[in-house]
Design a protein around this nucleic acid. Structure first.
Lengths: 142, 142
DNA sequence: ACTTGCCTTGAAGTACACATCAAGGTTTAA
DNA sequence: TTAAACCTTGATGTGTACTTCAAGGCAAGT
């Protein structure tokens, strides 16, 4: 499979695949006799793995660190586990933040046709208080 | 409250607060007589809101679009609702991707002390097959 | 023979989200 | 009154993660 087909199969651009190989996020890719990349299922899996982790917000740097350990022969399971747990914590926090924001949006959508939207009402109240305060200050300045 | 105190209170750098104001992610901040920013609880709330959404992966651009609608006086409810729904869909997808990755990592962690980690085993098996294939090819080339 | 369409590498360019710097102003404390 | 410690704006710099470009090679079709 050439790089274009791999790109279509994974949704990752050819340039990005080359970049991932250069950055060792995927293993060295076999070449045809003329030097073109010949991509197999193993590489496709690796590309998809990278995509998933990238979508989850893992940086290239951390991903490479992780994959290095992953691919290593020696079982440095402690480091590996620590790294996984670290990443897991980051991702869970991210998910919770997302969920909070989703809840917020859902609430707004559910109450959308109420005459005054309540979440906005809250902020508008603060806004009103603020405007009143500014006006008071202006009056004092007279 | 000056910008430094606000920075300490929110964990957002002074430069970032200025940037957020410039990009209209937070409302225009009042100034003291000499032109320094005078930050109140309302702004602090807004900064924290931005931080939360940013941590959840929303881009500055989308966040601004969202906040613009949020702050709008006119009730262009249809567009507003459409945009909220759009944003909601994006965020839910992101959350689901995250959850999938979290599940993946959790699985790995739960099976960490198994003699051979199963997910890795799978990849290592492919790796072995690959190496064997390369060796066969090398032998053929002799 | 030549166009089309794929590939290669290395270098340079780009978008985002700030961080840092330069040049200057104000307030406070010694 | 001079230094320290804030502040301002505008410009420029930075790191990340690619994308795009330049220059060329290979293989198939017309």
């Amino acid at each position: 499979m050439n790089i274009k087909e791999a790109s279509e199969k994974t949704g990752v651009s050819s340039a990005a695949i080359r970049y991932y190989e250069k950055e060792s996020l995927i293993p060295p890719i076999d070449r045809t006799e003329v030097g073109n990349r010949d991509i197999d299922a193993r590489i496709i899996r690796r590309i998809k793995f990278v995509t998933q982790m990238r979508a989850a917000g893992m940086s290239i740097e951390n991903l490479r660190r992780y994959i290095e350990l992953f691919d290593a022969q020696e079982d440095n399971t402690k480091e590996q586990k620590a790294l996984l747990q670290e990443q897991l914590a980051v991702m869970e926090e991210k998910r919770d933040d997302l969920q909070a924001a989703i809840d917020h949006l859902n609430y707004k959508l559910n109450h959308f046709y109420d005459h005054m939207q309540e979440t906005e009402e809250e902020l508008r109240e603060l806004e009103k208080q603020h405007v009143a305060k500014v006006e008071r200050e202006n009056n004092e300045a007279d």
